[in-house]
Design a protein around this nucleic acid. Structure first.
Lengths: 249, 249
DNA sequence: ATTGGCAAATTGGTTGACCATTTCTTCCAC
DNA sequence: GTGGAAGAAATGGTCAACCAATTTGCCAAT
């Protein structure tokens, strides 16, 4: 995707998370006031407000006017989950997609409607066109996967799949890996995978849909693995063997 | 959980989503400027900025200084997914948890360490204490489920499970349902479920762990179904039969 | 000693002016 | 006519001052 330099409030949010952990704030407790934080981090208060809104949307804190900012009850330990902001490894992401999307595909096979099938077929036509025209565009790919989630009629599942794609689109490492794909052979293969998934959905065969999605993401993983440079210190392939995941699904 | 009146920027964000849809903005296009939106909606620009940050964190838009605000490529159709802000039905959420957490449990069985097991056992001890002391507190329940996700060593999966619990904790309808649980029998039963999951994880039995998690959430669903008033117009149980889901997993 | 209410302090909310960056326009040199 | 540089316009970023809601604590009335 395009450039998009990080916005400053995101850095401040990261510092703020760290600060919350350092202060040993417990869930339900009040954290420092906006003014104190601004002073402490040496930034303006509006920047702190922006950062707090980010943490609020993420569900980490709760804001009450006239009272203060409170650490949300039941928030994951700030000590154990600091990687929200770190860049996410492609294979870590693929493993998560394998876990979620194959189960979603299985469910979708039980709930898919004729209209869903038609929309999916259009997405695949679009993808085929994209490949032959040499467009470097993953719109239709993403659209196909989202349509599967939408077929479950479950808004929460749609949001989760959508979130995963957002993570991918924002990942530095993924963009880096993606830039190495100069061969359209891969995309054709993935299109075949998609067709197989669609066929399974049309047949309303849950087990086959699940298996087809698993195979597809396994293929993607394999391709990316070949393209990866295992010498890169941030290479995370060895940690997330999709073979391991496939065995447990 | 406590009161927490909605913050104004969230309303503005909702209006802004609607505005984007009404204007027919396509992914990749630039939306109205902050000043135009402020004028259009009759609010201050800072409020618009706050709303935009929310949409940015949600992955719907992208902000570029000096240039404008752009609709993120590959964002889910603003027309088809307006329910992000609506309250989420308990059974819709339970179905999503069934899909995700059972797969996560299966994977965790392959990756769990001794330290993980110990931490989980402590969480269950805490839960047992919580029940006998009559504390009305779901901290240890949530903690147990999060520990399972953490055992996969996959930060993305941890974040997804954590997000699901956040949704639950913020759900009006869930709070309403929860307030009807006056009988500790349910919680004891769920504790037994948890123990069964832990046993499967200790045995590193993927299939059994998956099944135990599925059964557990099935039990929760059944209990809530009995507590539900099917006359309530917002009752969504009929839409999300967990039997349907269980068949496909 | 308890309680009710009032006032001050604290806290987040809002506004408007100004800053930094990007984009668009214009005009001149070639 | 074309290319490019300069500058004007537009856009998001930041800040400081002020506003509104909430909490706290004191003090008088009971």
């Amino acid at each position: 995707m395009s450039d998009a330099p990080q916005r400053r409030y995101q850095d401040v949010a990261a510092e703020l998370r760290q600060l919350i952990r350092a202060e040993g704030v417990q869930p339900g407790d009040r954290i420092l006031t906006e003014r104190q934080i601004a002073l402490r981090l040496g930034v303006g208060r509006s920047l702190v407000r922006d950062a707090i809104i980010m943490l609020e949307v993420e569900g980490l804190v709760q804001v009450r006017q006239g009272s203060g900012v409170y650490l949300q009850e039941g928030a994951p330990d700030t000590a154990t989950a600091p990687e929200t902001e770190d860049d996410i490894g492609p294979f870590e992401l693929l493993e998560a997609r394998m876990v979620l999307e194959s189960a979603v595909a299985g469910l979708a096979a039980a709930t898919v409607t004729k209209a869903d099938i038609i929309a999916m077929r259009e997405a695949l036509d679009d993808e085929r066109r994209s490949i032959t025209e040499g467009r470097d565009d993953y719109q239709s790919d993403q659209r196909f996967h989202l349509l599967i989630a939408e077929a479950t009629q479950n808004g929460v599942l749609v949001k989760m799949v959508s979130d995963l794609w957002n993570l991918r689109n924002r990942s530095r490492m993924w963009a880096q890996l993606h830039s190495r794909i100069f061969d359209d052979t891969y995309r054709s293969r993935w299109l075949d995978d998609h067709q197989a998934i669609l066929d399974a959905l049309r047949a309303r065969d849950c087990a086959r849909a699940r298996q087809a999605m698993r195979d597809h993401l396994g293929n993607v993983s394999e391709t990316l693995m070949q393209l990866s440079d295992s010498e890169d210190p941030s290479f995370d392939g060895f940690l997330f063997s999709t073979a391991r995941t496939a065995r447990t699904l």
